[in-house]
Simulated scan of single mutants.
Amino acid sequence: MHAERESSSTRRVKIRRSDAGWRALVFSLCAACLAATLSAQAGRRAHPTSEASSALNVVATRANGATAPITSKDISLFDNGVEQTIKNFAPDLSPARIVLLVDNSLTIRADVEKLEAATREFAYEIYDGDKLLIVGYDNNAEIVSDWTDNAKKIETELKAFRKKGDPHLFDAVLAVVEDALRPLSAQKRAIVVVSDGLDRGSKTNFKQALSALQSLDITVYCVQAQDRTRGAIRRDVPKPRQVIDDLAEGTGGRIFPIDDPRAAANAICDELRKNRYVLSYLPQSVPYSEARRLLVMGNEGINARAKTMQPP
Rank of each mutant, 00 (worst) to 15 (best):
P183Q: 07
T67V: 11
D103L: 02
K114W: 05
A31S: 14
A180F: 12
A232F: 09
N275M: 02
P238I: 01
G21E: 08
V26T: 13
R276W: 02
Q226S: 10
R120G: 00
E125H: 12
D74G: 09
W147D: 06
R189T: 09
I126P: 00
R16F: 04
R292A: 06
A40Y: 09
A31K: 12
Q226T: 13
S72F: 00
L181P: 02
K239I: 04
V99H: 05
S39E: 13
R120V: 04
K131E: 15
Q41A: 06
R5L: 15
N57C: 12
H168Q: 07
R200C: 06
A3G: 14
V102R: 03
L132N: 08
K131C: 12
A264C: 13
Q214Y: 09
H168F: 10
G129Q: 11
C30I: 01
L38C: 06
I126G: 04
V192F: 09
A55Q: 13
A32Q: 13
R23L: 11
P287G: 04
S54W: 15
A123E: 00
A141N: 09
A110I: 03
A118L: 03
A263L: 13
G81C: 09
Q84A: 05
P311I: 09
V220C: 13
E83V: 09
S9Y: 12
D146W: 14
M309A: 09
R234I: 15
F122E: 05
A304W: 01
S53H: 02
P287A: 11
R292L: 10
V102Q: 02
D128C: 04
L210S: 06
G21D: 08
P183I: 06
T67S: 14
R109G: 01
V59F: 14
